Amino acid sequence: MAIESEDLRNFVAVVEAGSLSAAAEILGQTTSGVSRALTRLEQKLATSLLTRTTRRMDLTEEGLAFLLQARSILGALDQAEESMRLRTQKPVGKLRVDAAAPFLLHCIVPHVGAFRAAYPGIELELTTNDRFIDLVEQRTDIAIRIGELQDSTLHAKSLSTARMNVVASPSYLAAHGVPQDVEALDAHTLLGFSQPDSLNMWPLLHAGGDRYPARAAVRASSGETIRQLALHGQGIACLSDFMSQADIAEGRLVRLLAQADSGYRQKISAVYYRNTQLARRISCFLDFLHERL
């Protein structure tokens, strides 16, 4: 005979309550009904789970082993039930999302309308920072981070990866020429990041390896600022695909040195603290964003 979840709940209740009568009161059943259910379970298992006397009950060795399994199974069932219950409910409340300005503008803002239509009960609060922030200090629920993640106590979800494009505007190239190889970049005006300096290691194959150390004549803290400088003909930049692909497609920027691309892809991740009250809002947003990236 198959063991049912009700069998497990009755057994665990008896053990935790300490007596048949106390378990019966908790379960809303009669003492005799709980006793019969326990006997049926032992018959199904062909073993004794409890030794019963007029004064006390003790778990047998088999009963102790079965108790651990029963609790694990019931916990999994409760978790599955809660998960399904949450899936049928529309999440509500505020969700604070932080990202670097370029990612926010190019990858989140275009989809806000669709997200709000799908989840009208979630109030989005969007902030921008070009540096990694403390989520608790900044009262942020999710932070989108570009590049390698540092070890931390935060939970992380990989969202996508992005190719890096070396680009310049047609006006800059008309005035200064098109670099034919990586070494030719040394003679050009390069646009880079003020920090971290790792962002100025461009993923290009050359005689010195697979990362070209760009010596920037103009630096900025924001990728969007660098993009605008490139669009205005101020030099050559290395920008993530998500913020440069539209400019390349429409001719505002020209991709350079594609033959020297090392194949490096910039990681895009979301980090957050696991919070049961926020879990549904966080998972809705991250699943939605992951589909679109």
Results as ranks from 00 to 15, higher is better:
residue 193 F to K: 04
residue 171 S to H: 13
residue 214 A to Y: 00
residue 208 G to M: 12
residue 188 H to E: 10
residue 192 G to L: 10
residue 193 F to S: 01
residue 211 R to T: 07
residue 172 Y to A: 01
residue 195 Q to G: 07
residue 175 A to V: 03
residue 218 V to I: 15
residue 185 L to D: 03
residue 204 L to G: 08
residue 214 A to C: 08
residue 211 R to I: 07
residue 169 S to A: 13
residue 196 P to R: 11
residue 198 S to F: 05
residue 174 A to N: 13
residue 209 G to E: 03
residue 187 A to S: 15
residue 172 Y to N: 01
residue 201 M to N: 12
residue 178 V to C: 04
residue 212 Y to M: 02
residue 170 P to G: 09
residue 168 A to T: 02
residue 215 R to M: 07
residue 213 P to D: 01
residue 210 D to N: 14
residue 205 L to N: 14
residue 176 H to Q: 13
residue 207 A to S: 15
residue 174 A to Q: 15
residue 192 G to E: 03
residue 205 L to F: 00
residue 200 N to Q: 06
residue 173 L to D: 02
residue 184 A to P: 10
residue 190 L to F: 06
residue 184 A to I: 06
residue 173 L to H: 08
residue 188 H to S: 04
residue 183 E to G: 11
residue 172 Y to P: 03
residue 201 M to I: 00
residue 178 V to H: 11
residue 203 P to Y: 03
residue 183 E to M: 14
residue 216 A to C: 11
residue 180 Q to N: 13
residue 197 D to P: 02
residue 216 A to E: 03
residue 195 Q to A: 15
residue 174 A to L: 14
residue 168 A to R: 01
residue 188 H to I: 07
residue 182 V to F: 05
residue 187 A to R: 15
residue 175 A to D: 11
residue 195 Q to L: 04
residue 184 A to K: 13
residue 176 H to D: 00
residue 178 V to L: 07
residue 215 R to C: 02
residue 168 A to S: 08
residue 216 A to F: 06
residue 194 S to A: 13
residue 175 A to G: 01
residue 197 D to T: 12
residue 179 P to F: 04
residue 215 R to T: 03
residue 218 V to T: 14
residue 210 D to T: 12
residue 213 P to H: 08
residue 207 A to W: 01
residue 198 S to D: 10
residue 185 L to G: 04
residue 196 P to G: 05
residue 190 L to Q: 06
residue 206 H to A: 10
residue 177 G to L: 10
residue 172 Y to Q: 01
residue 191 L to D: 01
residue 210 D to S: 14
residue 207 A to N: 12
residue 212 Y to H: 05
residue 189 T to M: 14
residue 191 L to P: 08
residue 212 Y to A: 02
residue 203 P to D: 03
residue 205 L to W: 00
